[in-house]
Design a protein around this nucleic acid. Structure first.
Lengths: 244, 244
DNA sequence: CGCGTTCTTGACTGCTTTCAAAGATGGTGG
DNA sequence: CCACCATCTTTGAAAGCAGTCAAGAACGCG
């Protein structure tokens, strides 16, 4: 694959996301660019941070997918949340000295330090983007809980795909309801609280019904309008607080 | 019931929790006491905040249990998280103008504004307590996800009871592994992603096995040491960051 | 081209839900 | 103090969604 081009544009979509969350000044963008100049790279499946290890510096996902994972002693695994391009790690809760969960790279991942945002009260663009990003992260956690607690396998998968679409769209990674989905069916199972066998069956059912297309790591939602009504999907309506 | 005494001591356990998270100065305690002088009261089952409504001022639960809820259009309900005495609402993500989830009182609840903590960087006791509380809140969300995603009904209930014990212990509300559990089996079902029927059956099984005692809104774990090994329970090890 | 990972399929099991109804509990008002 | 009512708990039988085990096919990478 043409990794060169991928790395050349690394961070591009990440910046796009942050700029979408709050207006960024040239100064903000310069700080981001400087930070992204020295990315840390992780290969797929590599552990970025282990539960119980000293916490990480606040960071930005420049490219690739990562996830938080809880590994049980008997082998069971649960993906707690996903970390997509432009999303942040360890911004808000830096007061905890130890990482509460492991972080694992699902694909090649480029990471960089999140430039500090100055005083949060001054309405700096970066500070605002960070705050909105934090609010979104919490929102996604709530959604994951509702998904696991009350949705059927079928509903979980649709709901999850919609969320991924919306989150990737912030980074400009969605074109025509088609978006990258670089995760195995076993990975999906670990995220949705199912088995890979059942994920497979459900996926095939959805394909037969013409609801989604899956090819080569890309997903496409066929009739979003109709699907959203099927599953009571509510997009995030979290934006930067206007004025003051 | 002797509500008078209950209200006289309202906030007592809440203060205890915050003081357990970080050392509080007399100034901090005075600010808390002042705030708690003007509590807002909610009757059981009352809605504290509706999804989509303007967000609430940062607040402290002085007494009682509340929860975040996601209500589906077809009647399904999922309790996303619990809010116990001394826990905080809306501290970190005040930048979102609208509430992302509904808040409902499970019992009578007394609420008060969280006194502002001055500059977070100055190591004020309150600011530190708020930060640790935020980290814990996130940790509990992760745990809820793992619980719903990968544990059986039996395991979910034990795991949840352990978490409640530990959280209530911070507020000094646990004596001899016995603690208040003012929630119906249907409420438990909504929190654990089960049906009330199955919660009931599972609870009875656990009682028959002599693992727990449940009487009059109080729960008691019989042999915590043994139980914890059964379910791979990991206590939170989040504390205030030392030094700096 | 060969090997390992991932995907697919089938048969069977089982945990959990559903539906329905009876029993207990607790608070309220007469 | 007791009857009454709503809410909560308990129980049974039957159905269903998802898990388990196992093996073969397809895919992608080196």
């Amino acid at each position: 694959v043409n990794q060169n081009r991928a790395y050349a544009s690394s961070g591009n979509s990440a910046f796009k996301r942050l700029a979408a969350l709050a207006p960024l000044s040239d100064q903000d963008l310069a700080a981001l660019a400087r930070s992204a100049d020295a990315p840390t790279r992780f290969a797929a499946h590599r552990e970025i941070l282990r539960e119980g290890a000293p916490a990480m510096a606040p960071s930005i996902i420049l490219s690739g997918w990562a996830c938080r994972v809880r590994q049980f002693s008997d082998g069971r695994r649960q993906i707690l949340s996903f970390l997509l391009p432009g999303e942040l790690i360890g911004m808000c809760h830096q007061h905890e000295p130890l990482a509460a969960t492991s972080l694992v790279a699902l694909t090649h991942v480029d990471l960089c330090r999140a430039p500090s945002a100055g005083n949060e009260d001054e309405g700096s663009g970066l500070a605002e983007a960070y705050a909105v990003s934090g609010a979104l992260e919490e929102f996604y956690l709530f959604r994951q809980i509702a998904r696991l607690g009350r949705l059927s396998a079928y509903e979980r998968m649709l709901d999850w795909m919609f969320e991924m679409r919306d989150r990737l769209a912030l980074a400009g990674l969605v074109a025509d309801d088609s978006f990258p989905m670089p995760i195995t069916q076993e990975g999906l199972a670990d995220a949705l609280g199912l088995t890979s066998v059942h994920v497979n069956r459900t996926l095939q059912l959805m394909r037969r019904e013409g609801l989604v297309e899956l090819r080569g790591g890309m997903a496409r939602l066929i009739d979003p309008q109709r699907l959203m009504s099927l599953i009571d999907y509510r997009p995030a309506h979290i934006t930067a607080a206007r004025g003051g």
